[in-house]
Design a protein around this nucleic acid. Structure first.
Lengths: 155, 155
DNA sequence: AAATACCCTACCAAATTAGTATGGTATTAC
DNA sequence: GTAATACCATACTAATTTGGTAGGGTATTT
C-alpha cells in the first residue's frame, strides 16, 4: 500500500487548523472540535509536532497551542519525519542497515538514490502548498528547478 | 517509517536475478540458492510477480521462471504495485476513499496530487536503472524531462 | 506412470499502529 | 495561595498488517 500513518495524516490536518487560527491559541478541546478527532488522539498528535518544533505549546489557564513557523516553512517531509522518524524505503537505505545480503546485493546503492529523491520531493512540498490550491502550479516548477539544481549526487 | 514491504524488496532482488539469467529458466530452488531466500518465501514472491505479468512461469519437469519483459520495461512502480496494490499515501487518495472528514478537509485534493507525483517518480525508475550503476546519471534527467513534459495536472 | 516443479489456500507468529486511560505538572486568575 | 485550566508523560490494550511457513493439488515432460 505504501501509505503514511494515520497519525501523520492527522498531523497535517491539525497543522492546517493551527495555520488557520494563526496567532490565536488553540486548546486541545478546540482542536478536537475543529477536526473531529478525539481529545486523546489530539494529545498524541500534539506531542509529536511539539517535539519536532513545528508547534509551540503553552501550559496553564489561557494556555494552548500555536503554530511555530510559517506554513511555507513547514514541509510535508518535516511532518512525516515528526511522526515516523527518518524515511528509508528499504532496509539497506536506513542508517542502521541490518540487511544481511547488502554486500552481494547490487541494488543497495541505487535504493539509496531513490530514497534521496523521495526525500527531496517531500521536502519541497510545504504546508502552504497543500493548503492553498492556487500555489499548485508553481509547486511543480519548484520541484523541477530543485531537481535540476541539485543534480542528485547518487542518482 | 514510510518503508516498502520486505516482499516488495525481495521481488526486486528476484527480478534482478531473473534478468541476470536471461532466457535460462530458473526453478524455485535455483532462485532460492541465488538469492539466499527460503524456498517458501520465494514461492510467495513468485506468485505476485507472475500474477502481475512481470514473469512467465512454466510448470512440469523442465519448467521454471523466466522474466517476461526487458528490464528497461519494468518500473519500480510495477513491482511495488504487484506486491502492495495501488499506492495511496492517504486514505483520501485511495480509490475507495473512506475518510469521513473528506468533505470538510481541504487537504484532500492536494494529497491526490502528491500521490500522483510519487507514482510518476517511481514509474520512471526501471529495473534496468537500479541494476546498472552507469545509467544513474541519465535517470535523473529522464525524471526531470518527464516532469516538465507532463506538467502534472493536479499538482 | 512417475518425476519434476509450479499453484493455491490457509495458518501462525511477529511487529507495527491506532486508540485509550491515568496520574502528574505548569500557569493563570481570583 | 488555592483552585481551575490545560498541557505532559507514560503505559497499556486492541486491531491491523506483515512476514514467514506448511501442505495438499495440478500441470508438463520423460
Amino acid at each position: 500500500m505504501l501509505r503514511i500513518g494515520k497519525l501523520t495524516d492527522y498531523g497535517l490536518v491539525v497543522l492546517n487548523q493551527l495555520a488557520l487560527a494563526g496567532a490565536v491559541k488553540q486548546s486541545t478541546d478546540d482542536i478536537s472540535q475543529a477536526t473531529g478527532l478525539t481529545v486523546a488522539t489530539v494529545r498524541k498528535v500534539m506531542k509529536a509536532i511539539v517535539d519536532a518544533g513545528l508547534v509551540n505549546a503553552q501550559r496553564g489557564s489561557k494556555g494552548g497551542y500555536r503554530i511555530a513557523l510559517a506554513p511555507a516553512q513547514i514541509s510535508v517531509l518535516d511532518v512525516v519525519q515528526a511522526f515516523e522518524g527518518p524515511i528509508s524505503l528499504t532496509e539497506c537505505s536506513a542508517d542502521d542497515n541490518q540487511c544481511e545480503i547488502t554486500d552481494s546485493c547490487s541494488l543497495s546503492s541505487n535504493w539509496t538514490g531513490i530514497n534521496d529523491l523521495l526525500l527531496r520531493v517531500l521536502g519541497d512540498i510545504t504546508l502552504d502548498d497543500i493548503r492553498n490550491p492556487g500555489v499548485q502550479d508553481t509547486l511543480h516548477h519548484q520541484i523541477v528547478d530543485q531537481l535540476q539544481r541539485i543534480q542528485l549526487v547518487n542518482l
